[in-house]
Simulated assay, not measured.
Amino acid sequence: MVRRYGDLTAVDGISFDIAPGETYGLLGPNGAGKTTAISMIAGLLAADSGSVRVLGEQMGPSRVAVKRHIGLVPQDLAIYPELKGRENLNFFGRLQGLRGKELTTRVDEVLDLVGLTDRAGDPAKEYSGGMKRRLNIGIGLLHRPTLLILDEPTVGVDPQSRNAILESVEALSGEGMAVLYTTHYMEEAERLCDRIGIVDSGQLQAEGTRDELIRLIGGLDRVRLDGSGDLAAAADALGDLAAVEQVDVDRTGLSLAVREAPTAVAELVTRATAAGVTLADVEITRPNLEQVFLHLTGKALRD
């Protein structure tokens, strides 16, 4: 997909696919092109070149039938504040063609999924920011879309509401729904997404599972052993372990590059102690998507 605004190329050749039951994350800073990309996927914008297909059908602004397979939850809230929570869902459900008992049953199911059953009779204007976000997600789920698109759904909400939103999203892939999730929060992508596409400057820099992306930067954990004693002897002893790739010694301890440090750390401590080191502290640092992003783009995720 390519989309330009004058001299600015907002989306520059982004390409990926999402399988049923998969949660695919687009991870990148604000302004990376994520929202423009999903606007094309949802058929709100036409691509200047390239194409979008949902269930094998071409997507575009005039393709009304295929749009019925998509649920879109935008960054900006799309709810009616004067209507009660249930009334909002009933209204949007009717727009999607739901009627009668089917509509009532589906509204009840969605209220339960997003944790708003107890507040269904209250006007949406009385909801907290997090509750409004959850109602927004519920609206996108009503018609059981094949593809649910969530654009930065946790922006501006408190930690408790954010966790409730993430729990709701986690339940969706179990229903066989394909989910496209955009975020600039690394921890959300790591928690929710089966595969992740890293986006910057309108381009897809890399994609894969978390572990596949971590391997781009070597994939090794760092272990710091602070202590005193015969550090040189400990370095020799630790360097013989199969899990240890590198050992560096300084005057306050040892720094190691290790494969699967949580599994190896007990043996590291045992060998260092046996070699004559008195340990004061042990710290494990595992590589994460923030480091992958920095490696690929040369800047921090939130720059």
Rank of each mutant, 00 (worst) to 15 (best):
A42S: 15
G43E: 01
G43L: 00
L44I: 13
L45W: 00
D48R: 09
G50L: 03
R53L: 14
V54Y: 00
V54L: 14
L55A: 14
G56I: 11
E57C: 10
Q58M: 13
G60W: 07
G60K: 12
P61Y: 04
R68S: 11
P74I: 00
P74G: 00
Q75I: 08
I79V: 15
P81G: 06
P81C: 07
P81S: 08
L83Y: 04
K84L: 05
G85V: 07
R86L: 02
E87V: 05
F92D: 02
G93T: 02
L95Y: 11
G97K: 11
L98K: 02
G100E: 12
G100F: 09
K101E: 15
E102Y: 03
L103I: 09
T104E: 15
T105Y: 08
D108V: 05
D108P: 03
E109S: 09
E109F: 02
E109V: 05
V110Q: 06
D112W: 08
L113E: 13
L113I: 12
L116I: 08
L116Q: 00
T117L: 12
R119N: 07
R119C: 09
A120Y: 09
D122K: 13
P123N: 07
A124I: 05
K125C: 11
E126Y: 13
Y127C: 05
G130Y: 08
M131C: 11
M131Q: 13
R134V: 04
L135D: 04
L135P: 01
L135N: 06
N136P: 04
N136M: 05
I137E: 03
G138S: 09
G138N: 06
I139M: 09
I139T: 06
G140S: 02
L141W: 00
L142S: 07
H143F: 05
R144I: 09
P145A: 03
T146S: 15
T146Y: 12
I149Q: 03
I149P: 01
L150G: 03
P153A: 09
V155W: 06
V157R: 11
D158K: 12
S161H: 01
R162Y: 10
N163E: 15
I165D: 02
I165H: 02
